[in-house]
Amino acid sequence: MNELRIVIPGNPPTVNHVYRNVAINRRITTADGQKWRQNVQAIASRAIATQGWKMSSEEKLVGEVMIYWPTRRKRDVENVGKLLWDALEGIVYENDRWLLPRYMDFSVDKHNPRVEIKFYRLEETADVHCL
């Protein structure tokens, strides 16, 4: 399968709520962060099983993200990424260094807050040049 779609229900926690600094250069994941991570991993595993996705390994992978917040409160879509991408490592892709996250848009859906992600492999072409 060349495409994988994952829908994670609920309001995603932000970096400020999932990590706690315990030393100068050390931080740990909070209980809420661990619970959310486990939930994301279970959802991703089910999606992979039903959609026939093969884990990506050493190839560029695009992750298009659409976020539906529960309220209009100001939020930063980038703050969702760190825990999300770490949670999917070893399940959707071998290593998130190959991931190209693309935050497509955000909106408000107070009745069904969620994160929708569409993954697809980036086809390499010899004619692509950077400026």
Rank of each mutant, 00 (worst) to 15 (best):
N2Q: 12
N2G: 14
E3L: 10
L4T: 05
R5D: 08
I8Q: 00
G10T: 02
P13I: 01
T14P: 01
V15W: 09
Y19Q: 08
R20T: 14
V22G: 08
A23V: 00
N25P: 00
R26C: 10
R27M: 12
R27S: 14
R27E: 15
R27W: 10
T29W: 06
T29M: 14
G33P: 04
Q34L: 12
Q38M: 12
Q41W: 06
A42V: 09
A42N: 13
A42K: 12
A42W: 01
I43N: 04
I43V: 12
A44H: 05
S45T: 12
R46D: 15
A47H: 01
I48M: 05
A49T: 08
A49F: 02
Q51F: 13
G52T: 10
K54C: 09
S57L: 08
S57I: 10
S57G: 06
S57W: 10
E58Q: 13
E59K: 14
K60T: 12
L61I: 15
V62M: 11
G63K: 00
V65N: 01
V65K: 02
M66K: 07
I67V: 13
I67T: 05
I67E: 01
Y68A: 13
W69L: 07
W69C: 03
P70R: 01
R72Y: 09
R75V: 07
R75N: 10
R75A: 10
V77Y: 05
V77P: 13
E78K: 09
E78Y: 06
V80E: 00
K82V: 06
K82H: 09
L84H: 01
W85T: 11
W85R: 04
W85P: 01
W85C: 05
D86N: 14
A87N: 02
A87E: 03
E89D: 11
E89L: 02
E89I: 03
Y93M: 00
Y93T: 02
N95H: 15
N95C: 14
D96S: 11
R97A: 12
P101N: 08
Y103V: 07
Y103C: 11
M104A: 10
D105G: 02
F106I: 02
S107G: 08
V108S: 00
V108K: 01
V108N: 01
D109K: 02
D109H: 03
H111A: 08
N112S: 08
R114H: 14
V115Q: 04
V115F: 03
I117L: 10
F119N: 06
R121D: 06
R121G: 08
L122N: 15
L122D: 14
L122W: 11
E123S: 13
E124R: 14
T125H: 15
A126W: 11
A126G: 13
D127H: 11
H129F: 11
